[in-house]
Design a protein around this nucleic acid. Sequence first.
DNA 1: CAAACACTGAAGTAGATACTTAACTATCAT
DNA 2: ATGATAGTTAAGTATCTACTTCAGTGTTTG
Lengths: 111, 111
Amino acid sequence: MLHDPAQLDLMFQALADPARRGMVDRLCQGPASVSQLAEPFAMSLSAVMQHLQVLEASGLVRTAKVGRVRTCQIEPTALRRAESWISERRMLWEQRLDRLGEFLAETSDEN
Amino acid sequence: MLHDPAQLDLMFQALADPARRGMVDRLCQGPASVSQLAEPFAMSLSAVMQHLQVLEASGLVRTAKVGRVRTCQIEPTALRRAESWISERRMLWEQRLDRLGEFLAETSDEN
DNA sequence: CAAACACTGAAGTAGATACTTAACTATCAT
DNA sequence: ATGATAGTTAAGTATCTACTTCAGTGTTTG
């Protein structure tokens, strides 16, 4: 299941919202509680929780509760999966362009 | 505007659908017409067109019409933008983990 | 123990998404 | 010119998404 479609759906969907990307940004600085995550946003805590659930379902964020505070962390393996899906495609296309370039160069050599 | 939020929204949203990722996959093999793109899918041509519009709005695909056939191509710069957003975050987080590792190593050295 | 804190869950709503069908418009081949 | 091809547009619909408010549940703290 390298590149499970359903998981890619969840991951890219999770990244397709500025608030959730903001939370990912924040978590890249280090772990945070739900309220710390919520602080920069103008939305209710409840809304932040829902975004957090999307991030967690996508595998991008892992959370754990200790006492009354839930601490959230980035899960870098998920980021790597998304990144590799994109980079595989980009590289494929760029190789194609390279081969095309070589072909054109060879063809014009023959003049 | 390096990493314009609105554009990232469109790009990740575009990638969050298996049919659209399938089309991107197909286009990585080389350019294709709308009907060629549509061929592997069980949906109507109309639906494919709508996915194509999403891909084009996101900047991932560029299309041009000659005669009655519209030819579609990958736009690698868009793929690179999405990839770099992710890789910047991943690297940030991994650096953080490295520093944490060093810190722990130093601390235990002092015992 | 009481109040404050940090979150959680349920229900409701406006708007976005992913389709469908059907009618239409150019272009190309005969 | 006729018909087939390749795509386009519009309208409708079911489902999903991103919130909201409000009423909880455990957990600390004074």
